[in-house]
């Protein structure tokens, strides 16, 4: 049996794939991996099909033990230090977990969301066309919930060549300026507040999950007119919601699909992944751009993602020594296209 047993686990680890689009009309937001580029990198490293799901870990990993069959795996996204029985693992490089061996994934050092991909994918049923866990709704993924110690997951049959490889990705410097498009509700901002919103440095807080992330600033809260009387409307990924306390919340994949709080702007698709990976304590400023800029940036990101497969190269079977590992640049956790 191809299985993987969870020995201990971080508080926010779930099964995720490319998401569940097409069900907005039924109140189901698309969900899926918060960092789809990292999911894609992991998929390529273990030669999986697009419909295969991976584990998404927020901030903390866990300990997994392989069953009776060896498993080819890859760790991508946020940089999590990891080792197998004391052998450290190189990021963006697939590796084998042999029967009975224990994989130990620690605390994220750079970024928030990491992905553990396994050749063959995690064998959980498709629900409304996806294996992603809808945590609030209690469906999809593994029993509709976050992973717990003691869970034993079956792993699908591997379709690929079963060879370890490395992904050569360019390093992304952490963004400090996040591009946005104003929305119609920006009209609710009181005079001068648009500019003040753009001039204010915001700090990313620890309050985050798959629904959203809360920001804070030392300046006075952003002021809105009649903000609480708006009809509920559709909520987009990356929407910047301003609740009564004036401190913005950025809405992510598992957002509620409709909402009544004012949403003054939306982070452009090309910047949202990088933004989601910025760790607590990072400071950002928003920059208003036009639609053309947003679409060109998205195009560029898609091209970069499309060319990822050309950057795979085979690796020797033996893992790197600690000495070799220390000589490598490990700051490659946040997988994202260069700006």
């Amino acid at each position: 049996m191809r299985t993987l047993e969870v020995l201990s686990i971080g508080p926010y680890v779930s099964v995720q794939d490319e998401g569940r689009p097409g069900h907005l009309r039924h109140g189901v937001s698309s969900g899926g991996a918060i960092d789809p580029l990292a999911l894609e990198a992991g998929r390529l490293l273990v030669s999986n099909e697009h419909e295969c799901a991976a584990f998404e870990m927020l901030a903390l990993g866990g300990r997994w033990r392989a069953g009776d069959e060896p498993l080819l795996m890859a760790l991508t996204g946020a940089h999590f230090p990891a080792h197998i029985e004391g052998r450290p693992l190189e990021p963006l490089c697939s590796f084998w977990l042999r029967p009975g061996e224990i994989l130990d994934i620690g605390v994220a050092r750079i970024g928030n969301y990491g992905y553990l991909s396994i050749a063959g994918g995690i064998d959980v049923p498709l629900v409304l066309g996806s294996r992603s866990t809808h945590i609030r709704g209690g469906f999809g993924g593994y029993q509709g919930r976050l992973l717990q110690a003691g869970d034993r997951l079956s792993i699908g049959a591997a379709s690929g060549a079963g060879k370890a490889c490395r992904l050569l990705l360019q390093q992304e410097s952490a963004i400090v300026e996040v591009r946005i498009l104003w929305s119609a509700q920006a009209a609710l901002l009181e005079k001068g507040e648009r500019q003040r919103f753009l001039d204010t440095p915001f700090e990313i807080t620890h309050e985050r999950d798959r629904m959203g992330v809360r920001l804070k600033s030392n300046s006075d809260p952003i002021r809105l007119r009649n903000g609480l009387n708006a009809l509920s409307g559709i909520v987009a990924m990356g929407d910047i919601q301003v609740p009564g306390n004036g401190q913005p919340i950025i809405l992510l994949n598992d957002r509620q699909p409709t909402g009544g709080y004012p949403r003054i702007a939306t982070i452009i698709g090309a910047d949202l992944i990088c933004f989601a990976q910025l760790p607590a304590g990072s400071r950002v400023k928003f920059k208003a751009v036009d639609e053309q800029v947003a679409v060109s940036a998205l195009q560029k990101m898609k091209e970069e993602a499309g060319s990822m497969a050309t950057r795979l190269e085979p690796v020797a079977r033996e893992p790197l020594s600690t000495h070799q590992l220390l000589s490598q640049n490990l700051i490659s956790g946040v997988v994202s296209p260069k700006r």
């Binding site: 498009l181 929305s183 119609a184 009809l231 929407d239 939306t266 947003a294």
Partner: peptide, 16 residues
């Protein structure tokens, strides 16, 4: 009304 670069809202009225 546009929301971001990938969502268009077609609004028919102010009340339900």
């Amino acid at each position: 009304k546009m929301v971001g670069e990938a969502l268009l809202v077609v609004e028919f009225g102010a009340q339900l």
